[in-house]
């Protein structure tokens, strides 16, 4: 089962919830955590994985062989992003506009285009002391697009962790399997069949989403079985909760809400959830001791052991809700 922890608004407690849910779940089942907030991954600060595997990732950029190019313009015509242009006797590539879809390469009648990997970041993986299989993406500073890194992170199947322990890090070049733009619409993240039984001994994958409600969040949520939406009871929290709830609805992913810093703000989140039919699965009160513990690098379940049971119960409720959806 794949659970995405998202929020829209930043700083509502996504990583707090994702890490504690992972630790509580790991007491019962195998757990994999993906930190998909590739612009600022911070779950490792709480879970302390030994990152012993590494892979460079990015997109495939076209390289035009001027000796074969006839300047027919087909590549420019098929490029949705205007990342390749034929001007007179020149074919120009604009790397920062390219999404790496491969349409130009595929459509070139002269086979004059080859592709090179444009490295945008790295994937890192390793076990945590609590036995969680941890992986994250880290985008290079200055890169504009997080989606390709998140897409590769979701697909990444690092070698068995024990087998890899102690081995040198490796860099594996990504290979194009099919057109990722087509994948995006129909298969990316969903290429693996959804787990048929959401409980039992199946692996539970927990994805810590980036903040916001744009493409990186959509890519993180795509293919998930459940969206756990963390919010705070403020107008900002509610505004962004609505946006991510809408993304989950569009993607057909069942969702539930965690209200963090409960007790501040107003009752608008509760009223809206009731109206929208979104269950509030957990409330974490605003308490100074939680804030202090998290600021010092502790997880919620470490700082407040009574939350182990609460997160375990949260997992059961999620499993029941996913099962209910499957019937």
């Amino acid at each position: 089962m794949r659970i995405v922890v998202a929020s829209g608004k930043g700083g509502t407690g996504k990583t707090t919830v994702a890490t504690s849910l992972a630790l509580a779940a790991a007491e019962q089942v195998a757990v994999r955590v993906l930190d998909c907030d590739v612009e600022a991954p911070n779950a490792a600060l709480f879970l302390h994985p030994t990152l012993n595997q590494r892979k460079e990732v990015g997109i495939l950029l076209p390289v035009v062989d001027e000796t074969k190019c006839t300047y027919c313009g087909k590549c420019a015509e098929v490029c949705e992003f205007h990342a390749i242009a034929v001007i007179g006797k020149k074919t120009l590539v604009f790397p920062e506009l390219c999404h790496g879809c491969g349409s130009c390469t595929l459509n070139c009648p002269e086979k004059a285009i080859r592709e090179r990997l444009d490295v945008m970041g790295i994937l890192e993986s390793g076990p945590t002391p609590g036995g969680i299989d941890f992986a994250r993406g880290v985008m290079n500073v200055g890169e504009p697009m997080a989606v390709p890194i998140i897409r590769e992170l979701k697909k990444w199947k690092p070698m068995s962790l024990r087998a890899a322990a102690g081995r040198a890090t490796e860099s594996i070049e990504i290979k194009r399997q099919s057109n990722p733009l087509i994948d995006e619409g129909i298969a990316s993240g969903e290429s693996a069949p959804r787990t048929s039984s959401p409980h039992g001994n199946d692996i539970i994958e927990i994805r810590d989403a980036p903040p916001g409600a744009s493409c990186p969040v959509v890519e993180t949520m795509r293919g998930a079985d459940f969206a756990l939406l963390v919010t705070e009871p403020t107008p900002f929290g509610l505004h962004d909760l609505k946006l991510v709830a809408e993304i989950a609805r569009e993607l057909g992913i069942p969702a539930g809400v965690v209200v963090n810093r409960d007790g501040i703000g107003d009752n608008a989140v509760e009223a809206w959830c009731a109206e929208a039919g979104l269950p509030i699965l957990m409330r974490i009160p605003m308490e100074r001791r939680f804030a202090e513990a998290i600021a010092s690098g502790q997880t919620l379940v470490e700082a407040a052991p009574e939350y182990r049971e609460k997160f375990s119960a949260l997992l059961s409720r999620i499993q029941k809700q996913v099962e209910g959806e499957m019937i």
């Binding site: 420019a76 992003f81 205007h82 990342a83 242009a85 001007i87 604009f94 506009l97």
Partner: peptide, 18 residues
Amino acid sequence: PALSASGGAGVQAAQLLT
């Protein structure tokens, strides 16, 4: 034609001018 393009408007406009 590039007025509502999501990106690469300058490239598209330059191609038209060409």
